[in-house]
Write a protein that binds this DNA or RNA. Structure first.
Lengths: 233, 233
DNA sequence: CTAATAGTGTCTATCAGACACTATTAG
DNA sequence: CTAATAGTGTCTGATAGACACTATTAG
């Protein structure tokens, strides 16, 4: 009931409000606002990958409908951008529990042939197990092998990867890509995958160990000396 | 003529396009999109300051119309966000030659009592001389003394200051706040103002001198030993 | 001379990079 | 034993912080 009163008040205000040129809010043409999200992960293959989908236009049986874009949707009234992102990923890729971060707004007036569309690019990174691989239209694609995506989505992926790298310089596993307990070997491999370079083993160990908590437990089953299991904080 | 053809094609496409629910672009309610900009500077007073304006509602002779918001405007069709920012600063604060950078989108559906308005926050930093102080409605306000601004603009200022600090860790004077040639004393004072802390003189000198070019000229007119003038690259 | 500012020498603690060594497991 | 991986000792060079010293100007 309170929300309803607010909505009525807002409607009245928007009719009464006039800017310095005497225009009300309704006199301004408005753009459509979309969200597009780069969901990164590191699947068992060990390659930094991103979720891409095909255009949702009809049956799309032909070879033309390539996996060439990021999941996205239009912002609905009363919805925040984060909610729109979660909705688009839930309905188009079967992913839940995301905490998307904004990257930037793509605003070139001609960027979308369908009309005036602003796109707010988002990114998030999740463990591969959280991805619903049975989902019909979505696929994982290694970022290194991405050819150019539609709607300038390649730039979104590039920005997302860049920010992910910065995050992994600041903390051992900010996206929680590893299990609760992990060996330094696993963490080392993850950092090399994300950075796209090799990282010296001993230097890496000494840098990371200060930010980790030793559990006293040991890994088992692999070759060589069992390694200590660590956890975050 | 070419642009005109494009516009017609786009209009046709937007009528033909249908999403997975059979809706065209025009079937989606759209938000108004605004830009709001924090323009930072360091005036002769030596305090990091930001431009604030009063609401542009009519004559505004009363004491109610406080300087309580950042300059902003609604995005016009065919315009980029950067163009809207430049337009708003030109018309509302008499500032030209900006290169605004996007900070983030403020998207809470209820944030603006006038209706559904997304705000894309921007920031830029300019030398104080570039500001038109004769401008009627705009004033410089030290960021330390800012009380709370309307429309959540205080958060914009906080973000702008944070990013400015990061920029000044990466380069001697990325915003060009000093003249073409300057002493290390001037650069030191500027960095202390921006960082909001004191910075050790000798360490600062050694860190900066590697990124500057000595001109061989000396300062004059001040007390003490004349200092060498440096320039950027 | 003094006050004020510019600029340098140097010690120390820390740290990244690099290399080589030891330790512990499977088979 | 060998292969493989885990973990450590230690040297080097670079650098930030700190302190104290010298240098050059005005008045």
């Amino acid at each position: 009931m309170y929300r309803r009163h607010c909505a009525i008040l807002r409607k009245l205000l928007s009719m009464v409000y006039r800017d310095s040129h005497g225009r009300t809010l309704d006199d301004y043409p408005r753009p459509s606002v979309a969200v597009d999200t780069a969901v990164l992960t590191v699947p068992p293959s060990g390659e930094l990958s991103v979720i891409v989908i095909a255009a949702g236009l009809g049956a799309s049986d032909d070879a033309e409908s390539a996996l060439d874009r990021l999941p996205g949707t239009f912002l609905h009234p009363g919805e925040t951008l984060a909610e729109a992102v979660r909705r688009s990923l839930r309905t188009k890729a079967g992913i839940n529990g995301l905490r998307p971060r904004q990257l930037r707004v793509f605003d070139e007036p001609e960027r979308d042939p369908r009309g005036w569309v602003l796109s707010v690019a988002h990114a998030d990174t999740v463990p591969a197990e959280q991805l619903n691989t049975r989902s019909s239209a979505a696929r994982l694609e290694p970022v290194a092998e991405l050819t150019s995506l539609a709607y300038g989505h390649s730039a979104v992926v590039a920005l997302a990867v860049e920010q992910l790298r910065e995050q992994y310089l600041a903390a051992p596993d900010p996206a929680g890509l590893l299990h609760a307990r992990f060996t330094l070997r696993e963490l080392h491999a993850l950092h090399e995958t994300i950075a796209g370079t090799t990282l010296q083993r001993d230097t890496f160990r000494r840098a990371m160990i200060a930010r980790l908590v030793a559990t006293g437990e040991r890994s088992s089953g692999g070759m060589g000396k069992p390694a200590e299991l660590f956890k975050i904080s």
